[in-house]
Design a protein around this nucleic acid. Structure first.
Length: 423
RNA sequence: GGAGAGGUGCUCGAGUGGUUGAAGAGGUACGCCUGGAAAGCGUAUAUACUCCUAAAGGGUAUCGCGGGUUCGAAUCCCGCCCCCUCCGCCA
């Protein structure tokens, strides 16, 4: 969330910038400003009363020591009154603080100045393209048919044991998954990311830390018995590693990578978007996360985008990078680049990675700070990106590389799969 | 899951009702000393909120978390969380 300080000091600017995300901030920002004033007011009053109580307590202690019991009792009565007042003020302060946070979590992150205007996906700007779109024969099969033909993925079996969106990978299909995970992790390691194996279930505090809670509660699987959530992405546990942490300035940037299964309820999805591997409830992903000094975060964002590009290049997939417009960028992001690969049999672009700079928006919730040379603390900037999400990569690999002989595996992947063709 | 023991600052560790935001030690930083270093000596070393135009300097809160008792709580009481030991179960 945005800091109250920034909002109150730059109210008009904040409202103007939020407009790009099609968020009307006028009313809510005004409320934040007035609530904050109220909060400060209560805080000051409360502090004064408590100071008085503390002072009296010391005096009472002295009086008791000197045996002046009557005087002490007189002061006791005074503190009783003050205490009454402080209780009330403290309750009011609590209400104001909670109300303020309730408002703050409803305000999205400010988009970076380079975020293009636009309503939705159609207004995203294509930054860069690469790879070759293959020309497939007329009888080319979509990946769900290929998966069946070569017995790689069994969707029906998944339905039986879990439900739709939980595919069962088999044989070379399963091996391909394992190879891709290994391929992505090896590359991330080589690029200087520290490999992490995080828990797949997290507590509510972690959900709040990265912003899945409270607003996206319905998108996560919730184990109510233990009040734990299945992670929708490794971003959640990995970023929360740095919750309530004060880092040393010289430790920045922190570079972590993690493979995890990801669990998403995807309530409300339907149609061709969910066919085959296009949208699943459980899928595999390798994530990269960086915690960086605010001065360097955009430089880092570019490096992360460049890094992801090396992956799609090695996999010899046709790709394009989109700069997301104000209407399509996520609630918490300041600037996002999406990677899409072309799935040649479906003849559509599929999103396989999303690389974002959250600036201090996440860090403020996480209370992830760093200490500068002069011992002041500042919020870090957090960034993350998929590198990458497997299912759609698999979809594109299967479709684009189909030949009469079988499905060819890209050279860079062969050392990881141990085979160069699926037939 | 059952029983017992515990959770104090960057770390260790003292502290069972009152100048304890917290002794002492270690670590770290800076200074002195030194040709340089070590040792030694000195100083500093939490976070958040708030008052103040700002700095300086005040105030408030925080000794796992939340509540209670009390004029006053790290210290007493209750609930929760975590951790260690033993037992049970178990990949």
């Amino acid at each position: 969330m945005l800091t109250t300080k920034y909002i109150t000091e730059n109210a008009d600017d904040v409202i103007a910038r939020l407009a790009k995300k099609h968020f009307d901030g006028k009313g809510i920002i005004a409320k934040v400003v007035s609530l904050d004033t109220l909060r400060k007011n209560k805080q000051t009053q409360l502090d004064e009363i408590l100071a008085e109580v503390n002072g009296l307590s010391k005096i009472i202690g002295e009086l008791f020591k000197q045996g002046k019991k009557e005087e002490a009792d007189a002061s006791k009565e005074k503190t009783a009154l003050l205490k009454e007042k402080s209780k009330q003020l403290s309750a009011e302060l609590d209400v104001a603080e909670k109300a303020l946070v309730d408002l703050l979590v409803q305000i999205p992150n400010l988009p970076h100045s380079s975020v293009p205007e636009g309503k939705g996906a159609e207004d995203n700007i294509v930054e860069k393209m690469g790879g070759l779109i293959p020309t497939l024969p007329a009888n080319a099969l979509p990946h769900w048919d290929l998966a069946k033909k070569y017995d790689l993925i069994d969707f029906e079996l998944g339905v039986k044991i879990s439900g739709a969106g939980f595919p069962v990978y088999k044989g070379k299909g399963a091996q391909l998954q394992r190879a891709l995970i290994s391929f992505f992790l090896s590359n991330a390691n080589a690029a200087g990311y520290l490999e992490i194996q995080p828990p797949y279930v997290v507590n509510a505090a972690s959900g709040y830390g990265t912003g899945q809670l409270p607003d996206k509660e319905g998108q996560m699987y919730h184990c109510t018995v233990d009040d734990l959530y299945l992670i929708p992405t490794a971003e959640v546990p990995v970023t929360n590693l740095y919750r309530d942490v004060i880092l040393n300035e010289k430790d920045l940037p922190i570079k972590n990578t993690a493979y995890s299964a990801c669990f998403r309820r995807e309530a409300g999805s339907y149609g061709k978007d969910v066919r085959g591997l296009n949208r699943l409830h459980q899928f595999d992903k390798v994530e990269i996360v960086q915690i960086q000094h605010p001065d360097k975060s955009y430089e880092t964002l570019q490096q992360m985008v460049d890094y992801v590009q090396t992956l799609v290049d090695k996999l010899e997939l046709p790709w394009r990078i989109l700069r997301l417009c104000g209407g399509d960028i996520s609630f918490t992001s300041a600037l996002t680049f999406d990677f899409e690969v072309y799935s040649a049999a479906q003849q559509r672009w599929l999103e396989v990675s999303s690389v974002s700079n959250f600036e201090s928006y996440q860090a403020n919730r996480l209370k992830c700070r760093f200490r500068t040379g002069d011992k002041k603390t500042n919020l870090c900037h957090t960034l993350n990106g998929s590198a990458m999400a497997l299912p759609r990569i698999v979809a594109a690999l299967l479709e684009n590389n189909q030949t009469p002989e079988g499905i060819k595996i890209p050279k860079a992947l062969v050392p990881f799969t141990g085979f160069d063709i699926i037939n």
